[in-house]
């Protein structure tokens, strides 16, 4: 595989975080969450361009963060959509390369190696996933059915797809007003093709709720910095 494009989803507005600032611009270890991801992206030669859909009000701040850290990849910060799916759809329309990596700005602890492994994975479409260590049943107020845990996978990002096919799938979903929570399910819905699941790590958490940020601070200090803190 040659060089790929990256779509870094940064369209969240932080409702579940109960903050006025989008969660990707909140800090971990004093550094904006999105910067943790961009630092890894910056080190990967195979990534030729980065498209970042952002809430309109935060485009300037996102660009400022990129400039503050002197990231040098070709970046495009574009106005995101009203949903995650719409943001991805809009970003895909800017992608120049045959293959695209989709990642979320709020998964700061993805490693450079995970990106590289995904890019070089022989399968055209691949994602990261984890086993589910707890039981998941169908239903809301009442249990309506059993699910076989061994047949389920906890979907993570980053994910890799053929750009043209993913964009076509998004166009269909857009016209049919079908909504999906992420791209593997959307892609599978329209093509039914195999999507390779690579084994992810527990560290690659998605920061959604306030408790995730607390966990993230611990991961940052213990896993990323790797120092012993006695105080």
């Amino acid at each position: 595989m040659n060089r790929v494009s990256m779509v870094l989803l940064a369209g969240g507005v932080g409702k579940r975080m109960k903050m006025n600032v989008p969660k990707q611009l909140l800090t971990i270890g004093g550094k904006p969450i999105i910067a943790h991801v961009l630092e890894k992206i910056e080190m990967i030669d195979e990534i030729a361009e980065v498209i970042i859909p952002s809430p309109e009000n935060y485009i300037e701040e996102t660009i400022m963060t990129i400039n503050d850290h002197q990231f040098s990849k070709p970046f495009q910060v574009i106005e995101g959509g009203s949903s995650r799916q719409e943001s991805t759809y809009k970003a895909l329309q800017h992608v120049q390369h045959e293959h695209v990596i989709i990642h979320e700005a709020v998964r700061p602890f993805v490693s450079k190696e995970e990106f590289i492994h995904l890019i070089h994975c022989e399968e055209e479409n691949a994602i990261y996933g984890l086993d589910i260590p707890f039981t998941v049943l169908e239903g809301k107020e009442y249990i309506e059915g059993n699910l076989e845990r061994d047949r389920l996978v906890n979907i993570q990002l980053p994910q890799k797809f053929n750009t043209e096919k993913l964009l076509a799938a998004h166009e269909k979903a857009h016209h049919e007003m079908n909504e999906f929570t992420e791209d593997a399910s959307l892609y599978f819905h329209y093509y039914g093709e195999n999507i390779k699941v690579l084994e992810g790590t527990e560290y690659n958490i998605k920061i959604t709720k306030p408790i995730d940020r607390k966990v993230a601070e611990i991961i940052y200090k213990d896993y990323v910095l790797g120092r012993e803190y006695s105080e």
Partner: peptide, 10 residues
């Protein structure tokens, strides 16, 4: 001391 920890990841 702080920078030693903060910049370790790089």
């Amino acid at each position: 001391q702080t920078l030693s920890d903060e910049l370790a990841e790089y």
